[in-house]
């Protein structure tokens, strides 16, 4: 059953309510908030992905972000990730379509890294909350960090393991 873990989580919520009603209510409030966030951001992402899948040919994506794309691919991965909106789990379906279209694995990881830490609207927010110096320092450390993690992770996975990941991503998006 696909929704087994969901039911287990619901059960945990029930237990929390029984043990501490106040905490249960708070958990429910936060969940409602996240659910709203998800419903705001996720549908357009998936619609854009569907369109990308239909209209952008694999060859184009390979040329710009594939194995031979070099610096151009890295830059594009950073830009697309930084311009994104929404929580990290929104990046994974995008990654799956990228895999299907033949984007290089390290570029996909850079995209994920950028999505998680160098999003432009969030940076502005970070500057106002924690100060310019803090935000800029973190950004300057994170950009090489994202590339480093992408390269390290790529080197830890064999060609065969990558093929498996790419194959299963294709299945996830298709029907």
């Amino acid at each position: 059953m696909r929704y087994r873990a969901f039911l287990a989580a619901l059960l945990a919520f029930g237990v929390l309510f029984l043990v501490n009603r106040e905490l249960g209510m708070e958990a429910l409030d936060i969940t409602t908030f996240s659910l709203k966030e998800m419903l705001m951001v996720i549908p357009p992402i998936f619609v854009l992905l569907g369109l990308l899948d239909m209209w952008v040919p694999r060859e184009t994506m390979v040329r710009y972000m594939g194995e031979e794309s070099g610096f151009k691919g890295v830059l594009l991965a950073f830009l697309i990730g930084s311009a994104a909106a929404g929580p990290l789990y929104g990046a994974f379906p995008v990654a799956a379509v990228f895999m299907k279209k033949g984007v290089k694995f390290s570029n996909i990881l850079i995209f994920i890294g950028a999505w998680s830490t160098t999003k432009i609207p969030l940076l502005i927010f970070e500057m106002t909350s924690l100060g310019l110096q803090f935000a800029l320092t973190r950004l300057l450390v994170n950009i090489p960090g994202i590339i480093l993690i992408a390269m390290l992770l790529s080197s830890f996975l064999s060609k065969k393991e990558l093929d498996t990941i790419y194959a299963s991503a294709e299945q996830l998006n298709m029907g």
Binding site: I42, P43, F46, V47, L49, G50, L51, D53, M54, W55, P93, A96, V97, L172, N173, M174, G175
Partner: peptide, 9 residues
């Protein structure tokens, strides 16, 4: 494209 979007979601 919309069908794919729904399926992926």
């Amino acid at each position: 494209a919309l069908k794919k979007a729904w399926k992926a979601f």
